[in-house]
Design a binder for these strands. Sequence first.
DNA 1: CCTTGACCTTCCAGCAACTGGAAGAGCGAT
DNA 2: ATCGCTCTTCCAGTTGCTGGAAGGTCAAGG
Lengths: 139, 139
Amino acid sequence: MNIGEAAERSGLPAKTIRYYEDIALVVPARRMNGYRDYSDADVHRLAFIHRARDLGFGIESCRKLLDLYTDRARASADVKRVARQHLEDIELKMRTLEGMATTLRHLVDNCRGDNRPDCPIIDDLANAAAGDDRTTKRP
Amino acid sequence: MNIGEAAERSGLPAKTIRYYEDIALVVPARRMNGYRDYSDADVHRLAFIHRARDLGFGIESCRKLLDLYTDRARASADVKRVARQHLEDIELKMRTLEGMATTLRHLVDNCRGDNRPDCPIIDDLANAAAGDDRTTKRP
DNA sequence: CCTTGACCTTCCAGCAACTGGAAGAGCGAT
DNA sequence: ATCGCTCTTCCAGTTGCTGGAAGGTCAAGG
């Protein structure tokens, strides 16, 4: 099938599917006229990647998972390792964001938000120059 | 002062400080020899940005905040709007990550992680092709 | 006076994962 | 033959830096 139908069936934009070919994730056959020709198996792989991306896996993890998916002799331990590592990454990101959100909520709650200039948010940012030690760290 | 000292005092890498000049965030004076010459005020602005970045503000928000910081006639409402919008963005990201984490935790907990091939994680990804409706959405 | 080494300069490339757009074929229907 | 849609390739841009190459500057030591 053409890329348009593969896009519809996998739920991915055609642009993205072409990109996945560029990086050798899913490489379809070609017709005589140069058009890409996707098999059902290709679409399956695309949908697999789509789901993995929705779960936040990076492209290289998707590649790894796709390899494991294809490998009938895989060990589930290998899959689990990839997933657990990713879960840890996500949890770290969440903690980072949580720290930012806590600080921001505090600052926003204490800002009057009227037409006067004094503002605890600006003060916080400005006083960082003084070498204050605050909470949030970047990812 | 030279960029090295500005880097030390602001806590930002020299590379980053040069980049901030490229995008016209903090533009220092120049000496006769072509070296950048940072004033205390420049360093203050750099530290301000450093803190804002740590709180997750994007570069354009930093620019806006810096403008407001400089503007003695600012309305704290303007600052608050920027901060609240950013807070909402962060909260949205957190909800997205939370959804991913919940699914992943469930899958990881149910995977034996031994040397056999059957694995609920792979199954989940593979069955996405069947048009299952699952929870997590991408950011 | 010359060299060494630490600094400074510019520019170019690359990361992740696409996304948009331009220019040009192919294809089915009218 | 022409319309309109899909397909092709390639190039550029997004975000916020980071690394590296090639070369200039400067203070100190021999």
